[in-house]
Nucleic acid binder design. Structure first.
Length: 647
DNA sequence: CTAATCATGAGGTTAAGG
DNA sequence: CCTTAACCTCATGATTAG
């Protein structure tokens, strides 16, 4: 068994993730599993068991190199409590782990000093300002704050589950990194190992692979490790600092988060209640700009404008770092857990997201946020305009549509549909209600309410007098702006899944329409997380020729859908498939850019699994095992910008 | 083995009401 | 200004059918 406490925690946490029922019964054989196919990627179900198993072996085999610093002097509980306390103070977990790894956990003051000095070291101008504001100013009373925390939270010292949760959150990142580490470097010589050692260290510190890669892409390969840490930490801190600044409100943030994640210790929440509201008001008064803790969603959700609505705003000034080429376009769900869009915005050059509901473009709602550096003037929708109401989109339903169902548009197209049993239950309810009432008029109010609720919840439409049914894949294709039968050939579930995850073509095309005049001779596209090819379809329907398209998509089903469409529509350009975003390395980008002369558009929406409200199990935010691939989007985009010399 | 089927709320916002 | 209620959500995991 691994003698390194931190490794043991890691392995135990990993074990618990996969085999929660048998946690605590780890055998000593965890290193014997030899899984070598690593597919942490987009939408498909992950074979967690395989990966975690491999993680055990990896963490064992790297023992003494990347992880050895963590466990030498402290017991795990001691380490955990220190780690926990500093995290509660508002320092990024990764930074705390790094500092403790460097100087040990004996001297609390030394840790604090080092943490503070790390904050000083930052060199990014606007972030430096924020750091000074957030971490330097309270220095005088920081220690008392800390001791206060230390006392009040002493109960957490033994809160093993709390630590385990934090460790567990780190595990996928660690696993990913370590496995990819072996995969990438096993054939490399010492020199290249040296070169990418910073990547090793960064991820070892708990940063995600995407963040680490992004930092290296942004700062360069040869810069000191501290600079990379500063870059990432600045992103973390400024994100957090943007939400709440002083230590007091920061604790509130952390406790809120903890409260939401799981039921935490009660005394901690009690403490939080005392701190609840006063700090926010204070901050609001003394801050010059409004509190951007939560990006407020526009109402109506029309972004910078939609066709046939009074335009809102067609002018904006982009930050210098955001200006292309290349143009880029990023998409994700609008209603994420708190703070997610703030983080995304911060990574994507501080561009304000454009929140748009596709109900202004088609017959179904679809609230999405888009971050892009495209011009805003002279947008035009693709013709013909798609149907905007249910009756126009699905004429067959009008015959059966009861007058008491007031819906004119559908709710968001999801990846799952209502069950046949639900259709049956509704049929029974309606038939019983009708037979009870003497005339054949209307069901009771109670039944009506039940039916309406279920219909809204599952997006059912009327296909008979007492029958509602979910949409067919073909119907969804039309509503989403794809050619009918676009996904034909895939299994039914795959079609629903692919369409439920896709762009609404008319909405995206409206935003992309400004490219038509800019690139009359066609564009080169880097399409990340392509899915069923919404970006490609949108560009095609806009009449923008695609010279070269690099499509990154893991699902083979989706790759085939896009390939078939490419051939069906007689595309003249060159379509290159890449299955894994991790395969999109700087070298690859340089190769493509050298070959094509650069990308004109980088487009994609990163996985929303861990952000979407419909997720009842793993709505873990941007660090979730799927959604953290956003950092790869940024890494790749920034790599393209860097290579093309516009960074 | 793949594919289909079904049950499983929380979390957050918006709107209404007082 | 506050509270309360209504509303909606690019899903996951277990189970069954083929």
């Amino acid at each position: 068994m691994d003698s390194n406490p931190f490794n043991r925690l890691l392995s135990a946490a990993a074990y618990r993730v996969v085999y929660p029922e048998s946690f605590g019964q780890m055998d000593d054989n965890s290193s014997s599993v030899g899984s070598d196919t690593i597919d942490w990627n987009t939408d498909d179900e992950l074979e967690i068991a395989n990966n975690i198993s491999s993680s055990s072996s990896v963490s064992m085999s790297t023992n003494g190199t990347v992880l050895s610093e963590f466990g030498e002097s402290s017991s795990s509980s001691n380490y955990s409590s220190k780690l926990h306390h500093f995290i509660k103070m508002g320092f990024p977990q990764a930074m705390v782990a790094k500092v403790i790894a460097e100087i040990g956990d004996h001297d609390i003051d030394a840790i604090l000093d080092t943490l503070l000095s790390y904050c000083y070291l930052d060199e990014t101008p606007h972030q430096e300002q924020e750091l000074n504001d957030s971490f330097v100013k309270p220095e005088s009373n920081f220690e008392s704050d800390f001791s206060d925390l230390d006392d009040s939270c002493s109960d957490d010292q033994s809160n093993y589950s709390s630590l385990m949760q934090r460790i567990t959150e780190m595990v996928p990142v660690q696993v990913y990194y370590m496995t990819s580490f072996l995969h990438v470097f096993q054939e490399d010589n010492n020199e290249s190992f040296e070169k990418d050692d910073s990547l090793v260290c960064l991820i070892d510190m708990g940063y995600s692979h995407g963040e680490a890669s992004a930092a290296i892409a942004r700062c360069g390969k040869d810069v000191p490790l501290s600079e990379l840490v500063d870059f990432i930490s600045a992103a973390h801190i400024s994100k957090q600092a943007d939400a709440e600044f002083d230590a007091l409100t920061y604790k509130e943030e952390v406790s809120k988060k903890d409260k939401k994640r799981k039921s935490q210790k009660g005394n901690f929440l009690m403490k939080k209640k005392n701190l609840e509201k006063k700090p926010k008001r204070k901050r609001n008064n003394e801050d010059e700009d409004e509190d951007e803790d939560v990006l407020h969603l526009p109402n109506p959700m029309i972004g910078f404008g939609v066709p046939h609505e009074p335009f809102r705003n067609v002018h904006r000034t982009l930050p210098d770092a955001a200006i292309g080429p290349p143009y880029f376009y990023y998409e994700n769900v609008a209603l994420t857990p708190k703070g997610v869009w703030n983080t995304i915005k911060r990574f994507l050059y501080e561009i304000e997201p454009e929140f748009v509901d596709s109900k202004f473009f088609c017959a179904a709602a679809r609230k999405r946020g888009y971050i892009h550096n495209l011009p805003l003037t002279n947008r035009s929708p693709i013709q013909p305009l798609p149907p905007r109401t249910i009756f126009e989109a699905l004429p067959g339903t009008k015959k059966w549509w009861p007058s008491w169902d007031k819906r004119e548009q559908l709710n968001c197209i999801l990846t799952c549909i209502g069950s046949a049993q639900l259709t049956d239950r509704i049929r029974l309810a309606l038939e019983n209600s009708n037979s009870n009432s003497k005339s054949e008029c209307e069901p009771s109010e109670q039944v009506k309410k039940f039916v309406i609720n279920q219909c809204k919840k599952w997006n059912m439409v009327w296909t008979g007098k007492t029958k509602v049914a979910p949409l067919e894949p073909d119907e969804i294709e039309l509503i989403m702006g794809y050619p009918i039968y676009h996904t034909r050939g895939a299994s039914r579930a795959e079609r629903y899944k692919g369409l439920g995850n896709a762009f609404q073509v008319d909405t995206v095309a409206y935003h992309l329409s400004v490219l038509k005049n800019l690139y009359p001779h066609g564009i080169n596209v880097l399409s990340l997380f392509s899915g069923i090819g919404g970006a490609e379809v949108a560009l095609h329907r806009l009449g923008i020729p695609m010279k070269n398209v690099v499509s990154v998509e893991k699902s083979v089903v989706c790759q085939n859908i896009l390939q078939d469409w490419w051939e069906q529509t007689n595309q003249k350009g060159n379509l290159i498939h890449v299955s894994d975003v991790e395969d999109v390395t700087v070298e690859k980008l340089e190769e493509w850019i050298g070959c094509f002369g650069g990308f004109d558009l980088v487009i994609g929406g990163s996985p929303c699994n861990n952000l979407a409200g419909g997720n009842r199990k793993t709505r873990d935010g941007l660090e979730g095992e799927h959604s953290w691939l956003f950092y790869d989007y940024f890494r790749i985009l920034d790599g393209v910008k860097s290579i093309m010399g516009t960074n």
